[in-house]
Amino acid sequence: MNHLPDAGSRLGVRRVWRIDMALVTRAEGRMYLTPLVGFLLLFLGFPAIVNLIYSVSTVTFETLRSPVLSGFANYVAVLNDREFWSSAWFSLRFGILTASAECLIGLFLAIFLAPLLSKRPVLMAPLMLPLMVAPAMVGLMYRLVLHEFAGPVPYYLFEWFGDSPAFLDINNAFRTLVVVETLQWTPFAFLLFYMAYSAIPLDVREASSLDGASPFEIVRWIDLPLMKPTLVIAFFIRFIDGFRVFDNVYALTGSGAGGSTTSLSIYIYQAFFKEGAIGKAVAASVVLFLASFIVLHGLNRLAGRRKR
């Protein structure tokens, strides 16, 4: 347990910082920061303030520039709306299921294909292709692929089995959407996991192998613990993306029969545009922001405590 190099390097950093501070005065430092602060205030702060005002106002497209303050009625309307909670439940289920599937398949592919990819790195390119396609395009593509009379999938199912399931009916739409999302975004998880897996020093694996560890034990006790931070990060990035899903779901099923595939983002979009209930839509987005902030802050604290 030698702490000396760490302490030394920390000391070194502090010294350089002090020298920098001598070269850059506090006023100059503030001046350098001004564009960034200005940018943040303009592009994040202003819309945030406008949103907060709209969320406590009665406002329509015609009165965008003159909203009338009306208290917290919009928040009450959102929290009492059955559709808000059903869309939140849809998003939560969708986010957890797709993130889990993408991470599990991505992890398997990363470990399974690592020997091949280390010899033929060019194979990474075709594996990454789904990431290049816009999610809305993916939705449209599957609308065609799964169409009973125009799509190849039902065509071959009819040829081989004499029947094809209704991929987008009320019973299967959710499953189809999960599969479509997973097929598109598994390469993202795979990429992260492959990089993390490749970064593990070979001598660690060789040492454990010499100690008699089986390949499965090496994965279980060496690879996975070392890849854990990447696994966690990948899961949360994919969960966040799945939770806020909009494009491909909207292109494929819209909000679904009776609103059955309404995600939270679609709920907000519909409240804003279809109902013209701008205050309600913005209130829903503020509630979503607060819930996300609490969850992410909690996770951040949890991660910080573990580090210590």
Partner: peptide, 21 residues
Amino acid sequence: SPKDSLSYEYAETNAAFASGQ
């Protein structure tokens, strides 16, 4: 009507009728 009719609009209807089925 086709099983996926709950996701059908203009284009899907055309494709279904044009298929001859």
